[in-house]
């Protein structure tokens, strides 16, 4: 920073000399520049590999001791040093799934309204609001979830859920339980609120770039707004839509503070979504500082490794989905 000004003037004085100089030094500079950029690009790869390797080394004692049992075990006992990752892994997946289940349709609705139906003078304020929401730190959502949402939810919503949905066949067990206000469902709901701005903003942006020609043509043929969105916007913007959903999912899977506040942080597996659970990220946030003993720490690191793997699988699946979609597209036309 200190010699920012100096670099700039240097550039200006050097530049004309280069033009008059031989082309060899020119290509050498190019070469150097290319190598530097390549180095930075590979640095990312290197970092990724380094993180993976250090997570693996850290998790080795736990991997050796528990083997594959770690994934299937609900034990989490720092006294006897027996650990299993099932509760946090399930918690992470379930809360993220709830979040997406709610956030995707809502975001889709927001994006559709903003691009197709919104009066022009509302477009900008609404769009900016959504972008602002995306910028709120997660701890704020967590605190809001604990102090505002959870009490209201436990008093007004959960008794209703318990008495109405809890007695239904098949899905009943998921929705019966005491109205504590803190639990897996609450965490999923807070997460959905957190990821909606992300998904909605991306969806709006990609719907925005759908060529007007295509849409107008469809309207000209008598298509309804829904048909235009369904048959023109969505297929045209599918890469962006999937990308937006993945961005939201990525945030939901790795979210730490907001989830810690409302999930209940309990290492026991319940069928009911109203009961407290745990997620990988919140387990790490809660227990890493005071974890004593090799196996305990190693088990926590192994959980981190799983979080890494889950994120990796999710991204890979998204890429596969896109490849398959585009292949199908090719066949149809």
């Amino acid at each position: 920073m200190a010699n920012g000004g100096k670099v700039l003037t240097e550039e200006i004085t050097v530049a004309p000399r280069r033009i008059s100089g031989p082309s060899r030094s020119y290509s050498m500079a190019d070469q150097i520049f290319e190598n530097i950029t390549r180095f930075f690009a590979f640095l990312v790869l290197l970092l990724l590999a380094a993180i993976l390797v250090s997570l693996f080394i850290g998790a080795l004692p736990a991997l050796k001791k528990f083997g594959l049992d770690f994934i299937g075990s609900t034990a989490w006992n720092p006294v006897t040093n027996v650990f299993g990752g099932l509760v946090p892994i399930v918690g992470t997946l379930v809360t993220s799934a709830i979040a997406l289940l709610i956030a995707v349709p809502v975001s889709f609705g927001i994006a559709m309204f903003l691009t197709e139906m919104c009066p022009a003078r509302l477009k900008r304020p609404l769009g900016t609001t959504i972008e602002l929401l995306a910028g709120i730190p997660s701890i704020i959502y967590g605190m809001w979830g604990l102090f505002v949402f959870a009490p209201v939810f436990s008093r007004r919503a959960e008794p209703w859920i318990d008495s109405h949905l809890g007695s239904l066949p098949l899905i009943g067990p998921f929705f019966s339980g005491p109205p504590i206000g803190i639990g897996v469902l609450t965490a999923g709901l807070i997460l959905s609120i957190m990821v909606i701005p992300f998904i909605a903003a991306v969806m709006r942006d990609v719907f925005e770039v759908v060529p007007h020609m295509l849409k107008e043509s469809a309207y000209g043929l008598g298509a309804t707004t829904w048909e235009v969105v369904r048959n023109i916007n969505l297929p045209y913007a599918r890469v962006g839509v999937v990308g937006g959903i993945m961005l939201g999912l990525g945030r939901a899977i790795g979210e730490t503070m907001a989830v810690t506040f409302v999930i209940g942080n309990s290492h026991s597996l319940h069928v009911s979504l109203l009961m407290p659970g745990n997620s990988i990220a919140s387990t790490l946030a809660n227990e890493f500082t005071e974890a004593v003993g090799k196996i305990y720490i190693s088990s926590l690191i192994e959980l981190g490794l799983f979080l890494f793997i889950i994120t990796f699988i999710v991204l890979a699946l998204a890429k596969l989905l896109l490849i398959r979609l585009s292949r199908m597209e090719g066949k149809r036309s």
């Binding site: 720092p78 006294v79 604990l146 206000g181 803190i182 942080n265 026991s268």
Partner: peptide, 26 residues
């Protein structure tokens, strides 16, 4: 007996403040 145990039941709050908050909320 340890700094953290496998709790048979209950909800976990982070820190003394977290537990105090939960008690007031629930």
């Amino acid at each position: 007996n340890s700094v953290s145990v496998q709790w048979p039941v209950g909800v976990g709050g982070k820190g003394n403040a977290g537990v105090a908050d939960y008690v007031q909320q629930v």
